[in-house]
């Protein structure tokens, strides 16, 4: 039997099924919590940390990721406090400085309010969000790709670098990769990396009314769970 719980997200009392994550529930109710590594129906591994929220327990607040936080009765969650906005802006700034050559990442930067990038740009082609890995492992049970290496050396690869037979080249990994979506003005050559920010107008709506998702264009870019479902 599905058990219902009632929790509070940004002051609104919402009902949800036990076992779902705060992120899924919030998105379903039109409360926008930016996210990247989360794909509905796949497991969450809490890698990008963009979906952080404040969980209020005994009048103390704890920062945690909403994709890995399961709803509970009487839970109190805040998704849009001053503190959260600053934290996710800083994470998005790290991401866009690392991999600016993607509309998805640029969209996330805009959505999270990044208006300047204080680090030298790099031009990496993977943000290690693990969407491809989990898709391949969990949806197709193929395990054709996985993470290899630790820390700075971590990357996605075939086992021992060779494409195994279980990989049917279905391209699902590519379709769900945020790095395969080119920036609106086309790819950025090395040395041209920048913060795009052209969609900033979209931000006004998302930031001022975060609890009333308007199916903004930014969500299309980064594969927001609301557009996906």
């Amino acid at each position: 039997m599905l058990q219902q719980v009632t929790l509070s997200i940004d002051g609104a009392q919402v009902e949800a099924v036990r076992g779902t994550s705060v992120l899924d529930v919030a998105v379903e109710y039109g409360i926008c919590i930016p996210h990247l590594c989360h794909i509905p129906s796949l497991s969450d591994f809490g890698g990008c940390r963009l979906c952080v929220v404040e969980l209020i327990e005994n009048s103390r607040s704890k920062v945690t990721t909403s994709c890995t936080l399961l709803v509970q009765d009487d839970m109190v969650v805040r998704t849009n406090t001053e503190k959260i906005r600053k934290l996710r802006r800083n994470i998005a700034e790290l991401l866009v400085a690392q991999a600016p050559n993607s509309r998805a990442i640029q969209d996330i930067a805009v959505r999270c309010g990044v208006s300047q990038v204080r680090y030298p740009f790099r031009n990496e082609s993977c943000v290690l969000c693990g969407r491809c890995v989990r898709l391949c492992t969990e949806l197709w049970s193929a395990r054709a790709i996985g993470f290899v290496g630790r820390g700075k050396d971590r990357h996605v690869d075939f086992p021992f670098g060779v494409r195994p037979d279980v990989c049917k080249q279905c391209q699902a990994c590519v379709q769900h990769c945020p790095m395969t979506i080119t920036p609106c003005d086309g790819p950025m050559e090395p040395g041209e990396e920048r913060l795009c920010g052209k969609c900033e107008a979209q931000l006004l709506i998302a930031e001022s009314a975060p609890d009333s998702c308007i199916w903004c264009e930014l969500g299309v870019g980064f594969g927001c769970a609301r557009h996906a479902s």
Partner: peptide, 14 residues
């Protein structure tokens, strides 16, 4: 940096 597992953005990139 050498010991970070690299899974999450703040630790790996931060």
């Amino acid at each position: 940096q050498d010991e970070s597992c690299g899974k999450c953005v703040p630790c790996r990139i931060g």
